[in-house]
């Protein structure tokens, strides 16, 4: 996409605006990781655009010294689609949350993935509505007590990744909000991926949903509770790197290396580029361990590539160059 490149540090992407997220919020970590990834991508910052919806996460564009727009609730994917189609040379990023993209903006979320426009979407999933002060979200679990579910939530949650795969997502990654190095690595890969890339960040909300992912993300447990997958590598995890995934019938099963004759060769090797999303879907649904990393990265034709090819074809088959050619064509007549 880009031919011109520039050398930056993450600081070049910080705007002069004071950041107003709550102290201790994972959003600070995400912001810094995005800035690092952009520095790595070496895209001129005037070619970078951040579009957001509404919610805590959606204040994000104000803190980036790039072009940006804080849009309206749920509509960021649609706005960003317009930006990208108007100028395909731009690197366009969508910042959204679980309420913004899975509730009010659900329709745009699925359709943007289906079309595969070259956008990078970062979904801050804290399983709660923060900005409106603590109601349950479409990713809150059944029984979760919130301001709008004092006796416990009765609505079963979405898995963002499962929904995304159902909507034909070509790129899906999941990462914990307290793992900046992995985040930056994934954001960089997403920036290089042609097509819509979706990154779900498991983000802690210190005020309304503190510890919502602690069972997976706490430093004391994460080596055993998270499997960080990498394309082409066996899916091995655990503090002692002694656990792995095997496929048994239609289920993924955790096995221990060395037990029952299991060797590293028996462990599934992650193929993020596989077109068939069945295994990716199974990885997304797995709860113990929780799978993070780039789960799916299948290269496909983008919407704008299809449109561009079609436009070239129509142009080469048409005699119309200027509107006059059209207006005076066909059935016209003279009045004297």
């Amino acid at each position: 996409m880009e031919t011109k490149t520039k050398k930056y540090t993450y600081k070049d992407f910080a705007s002069d605006q004071e950041i107003r997220w709550c102290p201790g919020c994972d959003d600070y970590v995400i912001l810094r990781s995005v800035q690092k990834a952009l520095a790595d991508l070496e895209i001129p910052k005037e070619d970078v655009v951040f579009i957001s919806g509404i919610g805590c996460s959606s204040r994000f564009p104000y803190y980036m010294d790039t072009y940006g727009m804080h849009g309206i609730h749920g509509r960021a994917p649609a706005i960003a689609s317009g930006v990208k189609l108007a100028n395909p040379d731009l690197s366009v990023w969508v910042i959204t949350g679980d309420g913004d993209s899975l509730a009010i903006g659900g329709n745009h979320f699925i359709h943007v993935l289906r079309r595969n426009i070259d956008l990078n979407m970062i979904l801050f999933n804290n399983r709660i509505y923060g900005l409106t002060k603590g109601q349950f979200s479409p990713t809150s679990f059944v029984g979760q007590k919130t301001k709008s579910s004092p006796y416990g939530n009765t609505q079963p949650p979405f898995h963002a990744g499962e929904l995304a795969i159902g909507a034909q997502a070509r790129f899906f990654a999941r990462v914990a909000g307290n793992m900046p190095a992995e985040m930056a690595e994934i954001f960089t890969a997403a920036g290089r991926f042609e097509g819509t890339s979706l990154i779900e960040v498991l983000q802690n909300c210190v005020i309304f949903n503190d510890g919502c992912y602690a069972e997976y993300t706490d430093k004391s447990v994460r080596a055993d509770k998270q499997l960080y997958v990498e394309h082409g590598k066996p899916m091995i995890f655990g503090k002692d790197r002694d656990k792995g995934l095997v496929l048994e019938g239609l289920r993924l099963r955790v096995v221990k290396l060395g037990e029952n004759g299991v060797t590293p060769e028996d462990i599934l090797v992650h193929d993020a580029c596989e077109q068939d999303p069945t295994l990716h879907q199974m990885l997304i649904r797995l709860e113990d361990p929780l799978v993070t990393g780039i789960i799916r990265s299948y290269g496909d034709v983008t919407f704008e590539q299809r449109e561009d090819a079609l436009t070239r074809q129509v142009k080469s088959n048409s005699d119309f160059r200027k509107t006059d050619d059209l207006f005076f064509s066909g059935e016209t007549y003279e009045v004297h």
Partner: peptide, 29 residues
Amino acid sequence: HKHFGVKTLQAEDEIAGISSAIGAAFAGD
């Protein structure tokens, strides 16, 4: 009229129709 470089997006709903147009306007169309 793609021969004139016209870009059209049949959007998923009315809101996406106008929202994509707002994005395109921001980017200079």
